[in-house]
Design a protein around this nucleic acid. Structure first.
Lengths: 148, 148
DNA sequence: GCCACTATTGCAAGGCGTTGCAACAGCGAT
DNA sequence: ATCGCTGTTGCAACGCCTTGCAATAGTGGC
């Protein structure tokens, strides 16, 4: 389980290169988060860490997340309800789609993403930070059953 | 100032028609919010209410906002930092653009909006809730000065 | 192995919002 | 004016996340 991608293997060194310290707490958070596939909210992550080590302190987890984000290992955005949501081992940046009806969530496809980015850049010169885009609405399924 | 749009004039009746009550607290929140032009965060609104009546209780304000939202008099979304943000006397629905660098914010234009909505509907059948869209990035100004 | 330097931790408090609940008070009916 | 029904309020506790600070403990150098 959790063979971890190359990026995770070298985390310790990435930390040290930057003069950051490799502590047991960080190690734990990194292990837990590297096993996450996709997204996870801040509190969920704290929860998982706590189940591994009940001593876990939330602020430490959040601070570690900040560092990991600076290193580019995770990114955060805000879910439909405004809660923090972290995207793990991000390949290309991507935003998210949330269905307000069923609660489902999807990544925004590349073509749609490009369309959005271009639309804003062309018309107003605004550079969209894709990883931070969260679009709420109703998924096809739910739209269908509601319209039905 | 604050001649209040027609929608606000009839708020009291809109409440009563629905079997909702017109209380001093709600009246206060409505007065304060009707004087707001554009957007306001939840805590800012509480702050303004408090400066008018120090007795103001936050939960009452938030609950009133929920009701106002149900009546369609305000809409809420989440700002760049995930905080609640209310859009007052919304004309057509619109999303928001936030510049992470200068903190500025703009409404998303209709053409861009339509583009986004269509892009998702066509490709995945997802119905975007425009009023809830918040896009973070860098405005033209900031992008320019950063690029040098 | 031991030191000093300073990044991190743990903790407690604080800010923003939400929620459960008992007491209160609009509002329509009498 | 009074009554009762039920929507609201005020309050207190809670959840998520952030921040300030003193104590702790990684790290590199000797």
């Amino acid at each position: 389980m959790s063979a971890a991608t190359p990026s995770w293997a070298a985390v310790r060194d990435r930390f040290r290169e930057r003069g950051l310290r490799w502590t047991p707490q960080r190690r734990m958070v990194v292990e837990v988060i590297s096993a996450v596939d996709g997204h996870i909210t801040g509190s969920d992550l704290v929860e998982r860490c706590r189940s591994r080590d009940p001593q876990t302190i939330p602020s430490t987890v959040y601070r570690t997340l900040d560092v990991l984000e600076e290193l580019g290992l995770v990114r955060h955005g805000h879910g439909a309800d405004g809660r923090e949501e972290y995207h793990v081992s991000p390949g290309p940046e991507h935003g998210h789609l949330y269905c307000a009806t069923c609660g489902g969530s999807w990544e925004i496809g590349d073509d749609q993403a490009v369309g959005i980015v271009d639309a804003f850049r062309d018309s107003t010169g605004f550079e969209v930070d894709l990883s931070h885009v969260t679009i709420v609405g109703r998924c096809a399924e739910c739209a269908r059953s509601a319209a039905g």
